[in-house]
Amino acid sequence: MNNTRVVEVTGHASYEIVIGPGLLGDGARLARQVRGRHALLVSDHNVARLYAERVEAGLRFARPGLALAHFVIPAGEQEKTLARFGEALDALASLGATRDATVIALGGGVVGDLAGFVAACWMRGIDLLQLPTTLLAMVDSAIGGKTAVDLPAGKNLVGAFHQPRAVIADTATLATLPDRELRAGLAEVVKYGAIFDAGFLDWLDARAEALLARDPAVLGEAIARSCQHKADVVARDVYEHGDRAMLNFGHTFGHAIETEQGYAGTTGGGLNHGEAVAVGMVLAARLSAALGRAPQADALRLGRLLGKLGLPTAIPPGLDPGALLERMRLDKKADAAGLRFILWDHAGAARIASGVAEDVVLDVLRAG
């Protein structure tokens, strides 16, 4: 298919990330990733309305005997719960899904995380096919096998590592993505430059207008470069014992904001995940400068780029710094030494920092 890019994830679990327009209609390609006779298509109402029929038609044409069921949830982070997880397992039970069944995740990060956790747990693990339809999922959450649901106490506290058989990213779906969700995905794209590749930050800065205008060639290149960065780090560190933790740059702050707002990014006027990560990256850069690890100028540069892409760079009004700090203490990235952050020495060079003094973190939070 024209304009299709392939990124290989190697190492412990090898699979392809296929990127290009029109892939959801390629039933033969999708069917090659479904080994057994049962499949559960997991999606949300917004995405299912647009794309579920296309995926189902392609699969049924390529695999006429496939027993295919749907599990569709309302859109939003607030749906990524243990209750929805249980309902999805019930859907697999009703389908009679066997050990060679496949869970197909059609949607953004919420759907991918939930469906992945379901696939990880049904009969101790069945196949997962990721079909991301948001920019954020294409460049981040669909890749690498991190699956989870949220608890009221914190984001992604219950989950498992479960690698997909493949990630098939149909970039044509980005045409229907709301502007806010496109910008949220760009935050994760910027993250790869911030932690691995300062030259990529320059590339993004020069093409900010084209990215926001959804130029297909520029978006395709940004997605492929981001996926390659993630594939490289996942191949080195599948279970996040070392280098992969750097992908959490900005996430300790960002998750605290999301949790304190009750995951209200979709329905309640709070920040969504990408927006919270954008703020979190700026705060992490400021914390790096406050600890004398990195130049303040790099934090300012990062903030300008994110602002140019239409993303927030400050903590929303009304959030208490002390409450945010308390959320961080329960973050799964904390350890016995205390708070753990991904900080940077300068743009493009991140590292893990444990035992960061809480008073300095609180000062950064108060400065907003």
Rank of each mutant, 00 (worst) to 15 (best):
E221F: 01
S288Q: 08
Y263T: 00
L212W: 06
T171F: 02
I223L: 12
V279E: 11
G280Q: 00
L219D: 09
H241R: 15
G269Y: 03
V282Y: 04
A285V: 11
R207W: 10
A213F: 00
A194C: 06
H251W: 14
Q163I: 02
V218I: 15
E181L: 11
F200Q: 10
F196S: 09
A160M: 10
A285I: 06
D205P: 03
T259W: 10
A235M: 04
D232W: 06
D215P: 05
G199R: 08
A187N: 11
L151A: 10
P164T: 12
A224K: 04
L157A: 09
S226K: 08
L204H: 03
G268H: 00
K155W: 14
V233D: 04
A289K: 03
A210K: 03
D150W: 04
D170E: 13
D243S: 03
E221M: 06
A166I: 06
V190N: 10
L212E: 01
A198D: 15
Y263W: 01
K191H: 12
R293E: 15
E181H: 09
A224L: 12
D197R: 01
L201H: 11
E275H: 02
E209T: 10
G154R: 04
I195K: 06
A206T: 12
D232R: 10
V158L: 06
Y263E: 05
A290R: 12
G154T: 14
G250V: 08
A284Q: 11
